[in-house]
Amino acid sequence: MSWTVIQQIIPVFVQAFWLTLKLSFYGIIGAIIVGMIASFLRYFKVPVLRQISAVYTEVSRNTPLLIQLFFIYYAFPEIGIKISASAAGISGLIFLGGSYMAEAIYGGLNGVAKIQVESGLAIGLSRGQLARYVVFPQGLTLSIPAIAANVIFLIKETSIFTVIAIPELTNTALDQIGLYYHTDESLFVLVIAYAIILIPLSIVLTWLERRTRRGAFGN
């Protein structure tokens, strides 16, 4: 391993680093939105839409991201839907992440103590008010650790974007290995880059878990 090579390749990796963060950011925001919609449909037992969201959750959770990406990027054009690699990557991440976020959020909503819901009904709140003032504030707080765990999971999944040739971190490392044989250096920088993103997040996650456990409501 040579430090000169590492210095040489760092600029390319910095670019890839920001790209990875950018794609993760859009993917995660999208996944949280999809997850919220899917979990609300399930929690409020909206007919028909609830079943559709259940089917979506099962399909998305039980298939690998790589195949989802291949399908979006290589199979969709054959039926007339063409999108760029980055758009395919972000869509794939949203498709996969949406169901994980839905489970996390639903778990939180479902974890709100029954007594809270009953008390709300007893003081005459409407369903909408119950959701707005009782269920969401508590449920969403409860689901934060699971959402954070999914954020880490989804950022790691962006490494699979390499298969549709998005120049994120893993793809950049493979390029460096394939073109210049900078094998050790590239893999070293790659692991460090993921560590820079994920170690702080995993520390935050541990802290959040501890806080939400202490911040239980009403008991």
């Binding site: 490494s159 699979i160 893993t170 893999l187 790659l190 692991v191 993921y194 994920l198 995993s202």
Partner: peptide, 12 residues
Amino acid sequence: FRIVPTVVLLFL
């Protein structure tokens, strides 16, 4: 093993 993505582990 938690922090390094599985793809990267395979390459390593």
